[in-house]
Amino acid sequence: MATREIILLRHAHAENADPGQEDIARALSVRGEAEADAAGAWLKQHAAAPERVLCSPAARSRETCERVLAALGYTDMRNEPRIYDATPASLIRVLDDHADAGTVMLVGHNPGLETLVALLTEGASDSGRGMPPGAVAWLSLPAGAIEPGTAQVRHFWWP
């Protein structure tokens, strides 16, 4: 049976919002930059080779993604507005829309990502272990439509 790989990457630590600044504009902190670089190095060490990279439009997600992709030597990052502030159901729809790619990297936010991991691996959205900033959950699941409880965690890493 064919399998599909999904690499979920939570954005690294971001600066606190300045007064009046929108959440979506928050940039990575110095700590976050180091976390993103570490995530990129870890993914390169583990031979990550995404066919498609989908990223939230939030500044902290884009900056995390750019740093990780620089380490991987990959340049095709697609802005995906549906990832920002997404529920697990929304994230599944995004992934289903890209079912033609065997390995998809999705860069986004909590609580959506950690809840998605729990739903896909355990079949329940309330049993997750959490995803710290900069964390990677690398899942393997059967090709086709994404269903709860069908994924296996291939790797789980955080800086």
Rank of each mutant, 00 (worst) to 15 (best):
R4S: 03
I7E: 00
L9E: 02
A12Q: 01
H13K: 14
E15H: 04
E15T: 04
A17Y: 03
A17E: 10
D18H: 04
D18Q: 13
P19L: 09
Q21M: 10
Q21N: 05
I24R: 10
R26C: 01
A27G: 07
L28A: 08
L28W: 09
V30D: 15
V30S: 13
R31F: 03
G32E: 06
E35N: 11
A38T: 13
A39P: 06
G40D: 01
W42A: 08
K44R: 15
A47H: 14
A48R: 02
A48E: 07
R52V: 08
A58N: 07
S61I: 08
E66D: 15
R67E: 04
R67W: 03
A71M: 06
L72W: 00
L72M: 05
G73C: 03
G73M: 06
R78K: 14
E80V: 02
E80H: 07
P81R: 09
Y84P: 02
D85G: 11
D85M: 14
A86R: 01
T87Y: 05
L91N: 02
V94H: 09
D96Y: 00
D97W: 13
H98E: 08
A99R: 15
A99V: 12
D100C: 10
A101K: 12
G102S: 08
G102E: 02
T103H: 12
T103K: 06
V104H: 06
M105V: 00
H109N: 01
H109R: 03
H109Y: 04
N110Q: 03
G112L: 04
V117L: 07
V117M: 04
L119Y: 09
T121W: 07
T121E: 02
E122I: 03
A124W: 12
S125E: 15
S127A: 15
G130V: 02
G130A: 09
P132G: 13
P133V: 00
A135P: 05
V136S: 05
A137C: 05
W138I: 01
W138L: 02
P142G: 10
P142Y: 12
A143Q: 14
I146N: 11
I146Q: 10
E147C: 14
P148V: 14
G149N: 08
A151V: 06
A151H: 12
F156V: 04
F156H: 14
W158A: 13
